[in-house]
Design a protein around this nucleic acid. Structure first.
Lengths: 230, 230
DNA sequence: ATTATTATTTTGTGATCACATTTTCAGAAA
DNA sequence: TTTCTGAAAATGTGATCACAAAATAATAAT
């Protein structure tokens, strides 16, 4: 078992080792640093993170609870495999959850907050132009998160992030094999609908954004990506 | 801090201490054994479960990850507080998630499986007649779970169970203060729609089941229940 | 050469300890 | 009496160890 290399991560001053381990592993999964089916071990990750096993164990309990990793029957921990059918379930669930979260956020959004969302959209475009796929993915998530968290009573965000995490590994493969990830987006429509405070139009734009964005990968395309990943 | 008493739980042969701790705590939260705002400690729970702190710590990482408990800024662990607005978010998210999950399960259900769902519905009725509220709540969940898990590629179930868990503490209060919890249900309609393989009717019946069941507690009723709980 | 058995290694689990951080309590000062 | 300060207690964190369970490798039997 060769030494594991994780994407770089800046640990903030005073962050506990457990929180650092969790945040770093979560980010790595989110940007596709682990392939579907990959086994991880407590000691392997502890070594890569330069920590003792305890914080890693606790982080792994969290990551398995949010669907980012799976505990197998034999107690091994793996990055979940994905099938075209499961990909479709993830996308359809994303559409349902995020349309709903967007709809319920509309009444809470100030013009200032919408300006902030516009700025994030510009950062997405910049990342795409620069060919920085992982940065575009993260910025795209921030775009969505900024909308949904405008609702102070929202509880959908952890669920939405869990779905995003489960998409991480396949999107990681996609980022290696397709020229651009967010060719299509409907962010302009979403922003316009937000400004009009039109809940139906917002939900429609968000749903279409997902469906026509990464949801555009059909079962054949997913199967092809999975075969490319070995 | 007085000794904690947890609802009884039958530990299966060979179950690891961690799995037992997690399952028992999860169940306790689900049936409302903890009040919103209650603080729990690792050592307190370990004592109640007759284990060392390690498995409890790992279980707490899981429970906080699925929304059943919250880590506070000061590192304390509490049962989340709930407001009428949050209750409404939980219900509306339940409606969206479960209608969707039901819809996507329809194509996968055999007659044999539907028979099993009917049997569960009968068990719910029996529990209601016997005045066993917690048993009715668990059986009601099993009714729903049986439908949604018919879809072999479904991924919504962990999200749905997280929402159920977040409703646990307030439903626990409700069980103490209302005569019956599931006065209204739309299980018959759901079952009929399942037999007809009518996705729209299934989604509609499940949505109505939730909306007219526990979703019938309006903001005033929730505020009243919260004040009764202290 | 193949299969079964045994030994070794790897990996997860639970316990315990020391330490860091937060809360509570007691005593002193205003 | 109230507020402040310092000490003690409670609580979470991380490290380490031994043990249990699973996987792999080596050896023996067919």
């Amino acid at each position: 078992m060769k030494a594991l290399v994780l994407p770089a991560f800046e640990r903030p001053e005073g962050m506990t080792t457990h929180d650092y381990a969790f945040a770093r592993l979560r980010q790595a999964i989110m940007v596709g640093a682990f392939r579907p089916g990959t086994s991880v071990t407590i000691r392997g990750l502890a070594e890569a993170l330069e920590s003792s096993p305890t914080p890693v164990r606790e982080a792994l309990r969290q990551l398995t609870s949010i669907g980012a990793l799976h505990f197998l029957e034999n107690r091994r921990i793996v990055v979940p495999r994905i099938t075209p059918a499961r990909f479709e379930e993830l996308i359809s669930l994303r559409i349902v959850l995020e349309s709903h979260a967007a709809r319920r956020a509309v009444a809470h959004l100030s013009e200032r907050q919408i300006d902030r969302i516009v700025a994030i959209d510009e950062a997405i475009e910049a990342a795409i132009l620069a060919g920085e796929k992982a940065a575009a993915l993260i910025a795209n998530q921030q775009f969505h998160r900024q909308i949904y968290t405008a609702n102070p009573d929202q509880i959908a965000m952890p669920l939405i992030e869990s779905v995003w995490l489960q998409l991480g590994p396949i999107l990681g493969i996609a980022m290696e094999h397709v020229a651009e990830l967010y060719v299509v987006d409907r962010h302009r429509e979403a922003i316009e609908a937000l400004r009009r405070r039109d809940e139906d139009a917002v939900a429609e734009a968000i749903g279409a954004d997902i469906r026509e964005g990464i949801g555009g990968f059909d079962q054949q395309a997913i199967a092809k990506l999975l075969s490319l990943a070995g």
